[in-house]
Amino acid sequence: MALIVQKYGGTSVGSVERIQSVSERIISTLQQGHDVVVAVSAMAGETNRLLHLANQISEVPEPRELDMLLSAGEQVSIALLAMSLNQKGIKAISLTADQAGIHTNNSFNDATIKHIETNLITQWVDKGYVVIVAGFQGRDDQGNITTLGRGGSDTTAVALAAALDADECQIFTDVDGVYTSDPRFVSNTRRLEEVSFSDMHALAKSGAKVLQEHSVAHAWNSSVALRVLSSFEDGEGTLICENPKQPLAVTGLALKQDLSLVECENISSEEQAELYKQYRVLNERCDCFQIVVPKATFLQLKLAFNTKIRNISSLSILTLVGDNVEGMAESACNQLLANDIDVHQYDIEPKSVSVIVNQADLHRAAEILHKTFVITEQSQDNDLLVAVS
């Protein structure tokens, strides 16, 4: 018998019908002889709905009260899922993060889990219950409700798995695993059977949306095996672990879009130093400099700096991730330039190479890099494995 922590996102519990399907998946896991603890997100669109309500009251809601409001979404979904299981004859109980003993710091809207008191959860599991915990939230030392930021339910699940010493943490989502790139933008992508923690962290940091960067880092630091699975179809998914059985030279291509090239003039040295800490610098001259920022962030900067900054163009960043990618930077740039795609800048980090291109060139650039470096290198890896065998 194993202890499995499962996480279901907003799309997975987006309707009563889908909640009923999730309860069937949980029952299937129980029938395999496992104990199950579940972390659940709010129903799809609910957090945005609550945030919209808050913004109708105030453009900048008070952080503590905003967390109080946003945490309501998960309480709906955990209660409905517990009702579904109970109605099917399965003992289940829902717990808010406070009841589950999830303690955080007091950084409202973006709190960090400090520790989890697992006594109550363990007691219910020992009694044969499925314990359903509200994701995305916790409580600080003063008893205030806090939220963990976007994607926080993944972090809740990983933290629960680590605290409970679970055998596996299963992240159920609307895709059936981690792919070599985003199938919405790139053709002929492949589902990966296994990915190392380091590669998955690099992919998430560079824009891959299947897992949140913080949750991967937490799993890595805690040595919690992660498995990404589909809520809507059966399959093995993708295992995220320390040492994959078949390490790849190039694991995948991450895409980050909706970025703005922002030109800054007449900025004080103190302001410039602060912007340099937060954003990638693209060009620098004596009288001005250019930085790359998310489009949503540009509006905030515009309010702060007014006429001192202006949006020049829209950009995207493509990042190759894997053990052997550092030596591919020049070749990647040459491939793009040969296809009339301008490269504004490239950057080399351990296990990753990033290139910045115009947003309009994202699709073509992704196809070229994926076909040339990801698919080709993985095919060579497979040929080598066959030869060795």
Rank of each mutant, 00 (worst) to 15 (best):
G135N: 04
I113A: 07
T96D: 11
E193C: 10
T147R: 04
A163L: 09
Q137P: 09
F197S: 10
T189V: 15
I93Y: 09
G128E: 06
A97S: 15
R150Y: 08
E194V: 08
I116A: 06
T155F: 03
D174Q: 11
I102L: 07
A162L: 06
D176E: 11
K127I: 04
S187L: 09
R139H: 14
D110T: 13
L203V: 12
S107R: 15
V133D: 05
H103P: 00
I93A: 14
A161N: 01
L120H: 06
G138K: 00
R190S: 13
A159D: 06
S153D: 07
D126F: 00
T122F: 03
R190H: 14
S198H: 12
A161Y: 03
G177T: 07
V195S: 00
R139M: 12
R191F: 05
D141C: 08
Q123M: 10
N105T: 13
T96S: 15
G152F: 03
T96Q: 10
L164E: 00
L148V: 03
V133N: 12
Q99T: 08
T156W: 04
A111R: 12
D98G: 13
F172Q: 00
A166I: 01
F136G: 03
I145R: 01
A163Y: 01
K114D: 11
W124C: 09
D110Q: 15
T118M: 09
A163V: 02
L160F: 06
S181N: 03
A157L: 07
T173R: 00
A92V: 01
T180K: 08
A166M: 04
N144C: 12
V178I: 14
T146R: 10
D174G: 08
N109I: 11
Y179N: 10
N188S: 14
D141W: 04
Q142M: 09
A202N: 15
A162E: 11
T118A: 13
F197W: 13
Q170M: 12
A161L: 01
V178P: 02
N144F: 09
K127Y: 10
A97C: 06
F136E: 07
T118N: 12
S196P: 02
A100R: 05
G149P: 04
K91T: 12
D167Q: 11
L95Q: 02
Q137D: 12
L120K: 15
Q142E: 15
I116E: 00
T189F: 02
H115K: 15
F136V: 11
A100P: 01
A202F: 01
Q142I: 02
A162P: 04
L95C: 06
F197V: 07
V175P: 02
T96P: 08
L95H: 05
G149H: 07
I116L: 10
R191Q: 15
D176A: 11
P183W: 03
D167C: 01
L95R: 05
A161M: 01
S187F: 04
A157C: 09
T146P: 10
N188M: 09
I121E: 01
A100M: 08
T173I: 02
A159I: 00
A204Q: 06
I171M: 14
W124K: 15
V125H: 04
